[in-house]
Amino acid sequence: MLPFSFEWVWDMGHIVFHGGLWYALNIIGLGMTWCIGKAIYDTIKGKGAHDHH
C-alpha cells in the first residue's frame, strides 16, 4: 500500500509497518539487482564460462 491509497493514514502505525516492509523489499530488490548486474558484468568480462569452483 502506498500513501496515495484511500486507506492510508499518516500515523506511526502505518509508517513503522510500511517502513519495515519497504526496508525489507529494498534489501531484497537491491540485492537481486546487484547479483544480476554483477552476473551480467562478469559474463561480458568473459568470466566463468567453464570455470568450476
Binding site: I28, W34, C35, I36, A39, D42, G48, A49, D51, H53
Partner: peptide, 18 residues
C-alpha cells in the same frame, strides 16, 4: 551457461544478506 553460472555464484556470495 556463463550468465547463470555467474548469477549463481553471486547469489551465493550475497546469500547471507537474503
Amino acid at each position: 551457461v556463463p550468465f547463470f553460472h555467474n548469477l549463481s555464484h553471486n547469489l551465493h556470495e550475497t546469500m547471507a544478506l537474503f
